[in-house]
Every structure is written in C-alpha cells, then in structure tokens.
C-alpha cells in the first residue's frame, strides 16, 4: 500500500499491483512513467481518471471511448502489441484522454492517440493511430447529440474494448 498526496483527489491509498507502467510516458510527458486508474462509482459513466504516481499533482481525465463513440474501431499496431507484451485481446483496455477547457461545452477526447493498457502485465502506452478517420479533438457533446438524434448506433463489441477500472 502506498499513500499519495494528489492535487485532484487529496490523499489516496494505492496498491502496488494496481500501478501501471508507461515506459515511454506520454508525448509531452515522457517523465511520467507510473499511473493508477481511478474509476467512477457510477459504473454507467464512461469517465475515469489516470492519476500519475511519480508526479501526483498530475492527473488526466479519461473516458472509455467505446461508451461514447459506439463505432470506434481501430487495428492495434503490431509494434504496440509487442511493446506491451499483449498475448490476447481480452487483456487490452482502451481509454481516451479527455480535455476539459474553460468552455465546458467544448469537452473533447483524443481518439487519434488512445491509451492502451495490458491489464495482465500492467504495461501501458499512448499510441498514435495511423489514420485520418479520427482526430485528437473529438467533441463529446456533438457525438452524444449525433448518437441520440441519429440512427441506432449498434452495440458490436469493438476490438480491444475491455473496460476495467482498477
């Protein structure tokens, strides 16, 4: 058990087994190598947090992209699968980093560079998808309006859509 003094959640206790290792950190934050996932009490919420362990004043709001963008779909690049030692699809959790600007209506998520976590080894990385299909700034409110207003979004299980909040 470790106690962390965080900016967003005050004092929290974390178990060593739940610490995620991001060997490459994140683009712009290469020095942030250890994180824990903080889930939501409301299990129907797509939102959670990626709390940094080695720099506890930093935390990222994250979202399960498949719960917001029903048809979010991508091929996990081989290099990423190797780097994270992914043995099977069920071990993979995917999250998008959420930006909450001062204008709350412009809340967005990064679909172009998802966070990939191997739940069995606790290794993680932010990978950049080689596609024009998704952007770094996908506006969440627009997406929800689109889904509610438009046709049935479908509930196919997407690749790597294992959602585990630790």
């Amino acid at each position: 058990m470790r106690v962390l003094q965080t900016r967003h959640f005050g004092e929290i206790r974390i178990a060593e087994e739940s610490v995620l290792k991001f060997d490459e950190g994140l683009p712009g934050f290469e020095q942030l190598n250890k994180f824990v996932l903080i889930g939501n009490e409301d299990k129907t919420s797509p939102f959670g947090w990626l709390q940094c362990v080695n720099e506890p004043q930093i935390a990222f709001a994250i979202a399960n992209p498949f719960m917001i963008v029903a048809d979010y779909d991508f091929e996990l690049p081989d290099e990423a699968a190797r780097e994270l030692c992914i043995a099977k699809e069920d071990d993979v959790a995917v999250y998008s980093i959420v930006v909450v600007p001062d204008d709350l209506t412009r809340i967005s998520m990064n679909l172009k560079a998802p966070l990939i976590i191997n739940c069995s080894t606790n290794k993680g990385a932010q990978i950049i998808l080689d596609t024009d299909k998704y952007t770094v700034r996908h506006y969440i409110l627009d997406e929800i309006r689109r889904q509610e207003g438009g046709a049935d979004a479908g509930t196919d299980k997407e690749k790597g859509s294992d959602d585990r909040h630790k």
């Binding site: 994140l26 683009p27 934050f29 990064n110 172009k112 932010q126």
Partner: peptide, 15 residues
C-alpha cells in the same frame, strides 16, 4: 499535435 493536446489535458482543474 498529440503533445499539445496532452498538455492541454493536464491543465484540467481539480474536480
């Protein structure tokens, strides 16, 4: 672009 977006995300105010 990813770097800038991450920096923006890290500026989120405490909940």
């Amino acid at each position: 672009e990813i770097q800038r977006e991450n920096e923006e995300a890290a500026r989120i105010k405490p909940e």
